[in-house]
Design a protein around this nucleic acid. Structure first.
Lengths: 218, 218
DNA sequence: TGTGTTTTGTCAGCCGCTGACGTAATATTC
DNA sequence: GAATATTACGTCAGCGGCTGACAAAACACA
């Protein structure tokens, strides 16, 4: 084909450009098909065909079908980490994480991540993807621990605190996510509310005895 | 309908007995092969052959290869829940969980669960199984939340606290488990130590600012 | 333009997993 | 003890995820 007229300004070369575009194309095809037909009912051959390549090529770009979802989630996480770095330095780690989540949500609300931004919502729609998401939570946790470590000046390799904080934070999020799924709601704002409810509960839940069983009206 | 109460005895019948034995046989074959050759390199056909049945029969007893590991872990969890119920009623929930873990370990130390008891250690040996374990952590979390709910008289369906506590507890355990794997240690006692270290860190990590970065020697 | 490297499609194949169907083992009834 | 219905099992065929190997096409560099 042509394309020889386009002069790449950067040193990255035409090849890597194509690779990046192919990767984006495959991910977009996959996420769209997942959204339309469901994760389970979408085959890797369909994804490849939708992107105009062979199945083998799909597996050269993504290690597995699950990896597509994972990478979308990780791209979204990336911005959460940026939000964390932007929080004032005097905020305690856990508080900073909570507030970064609020900032992050405000960013997602403006929708610059289009399909990827809805990846988490997509996960909610199909129980299979919840497990897929779970499967990778230790990868997310490692990345978050690193971000927490950078913020606090603590090395996650020698100090267990960043890892513990990351794990606790993500597990509380997961609980909120599950409750949101169970409620059948599709309102993204309610999802943030569920997140914050659980996060705010963590200190009280691990500290001392609990207040009376059910303070709700009966 | 037929009169199934021909025999009022609690005799479950030969058939169900055989089913139970077959199930045990398959699980034992699987766990032993996993232990010897690794999870990945053990095929479901080998498991079936080891138990003297066809592959199809294996899949009639277990929904997936992963399920075998999951059920082993759940069997072990079962006793953790019992230990939790035995803790004094005046212990706060998180403390009770922590201490139940210690009791539970003492039980495992006596080795009545033989192969199943080593399932968690097996998980440590193969990175693939860590992901398998992760995949099911929300199932474990639900069961633990129920146990916590029973102990505290709180309904997990309406009060989010049991779910949050269960999630935080298990995620802290997972962190300890990962650290233990990373250290390359195969000493089970060190694993318990890693668990307790992380659990004891949780309150301090979510509460306020952190103490100086790294108090350890350089 | 020609040469060496990277990327792709095709093919073959393993493995996890499932539906369908016939058969053997078990339980029930006479 | 024979006839019956019920249940478990083996065999077979097949799908979908995933991988190695090889040849052809696309690209980079000179």
């Amino acid at each position: 084909m042509s394309a020889t007229s386009a002069e790449p300004e950067e040193q990255v070369g035409l090849r890597e450009r194509k690779k990046a575009r192919m990767r984006e194309s495959l991910m977009e095809s996959a996420l769209r098909l997942f959204h339309e037909n469901g994760y389970q009912r979408t085959t890797t051959e369909e994804i490849a065909a939708c992107a105009g390549v062979s199945q083998r090529t799909f597996f050269r770009y993504f290690g597995s079908k699950e990896d597509v979802v994972l990478e979308a989630v990780e791209d979204v996480d990336e911005h959460l980490f940026a939000s964390l770095a932007d929080r004032p330095a005097d905020e305690p780690p856990f508080t900073a994480l909570r507030n970064a989540m609020v900032d992050h949500w405000e960013y997602l609300r403006r929708g610059p991540l289009h399909l990827k931004g809805s990846a988490m919502g997509m996960v909610a729609d199909s129980p299979e993807l919840i497990e897929v998401n779970m499967r990778y939570c230790h990868r997310r946790q490692h990345r978050l621990a690193r971000a927490v470590g950078e913020r606090t000046g603590v090395d996650p390799a020698t100090d267990p605190r960043p890892g513990v904080l990351a794990a606790v934070f993500l597990s509380a999020l997961a609980t909120g996510h599950q409750a949101w799924c169970a409620s059948g709601s599709h309102d993204k704002e309610r999802l943030l509310g569920a997140f914050l409810d659980r996060l705010d509960l963590v200190p009280e839940v691990v500290e001392g005895p609990w207040s009376p069983p059910v303070p709700s009206p009966g």
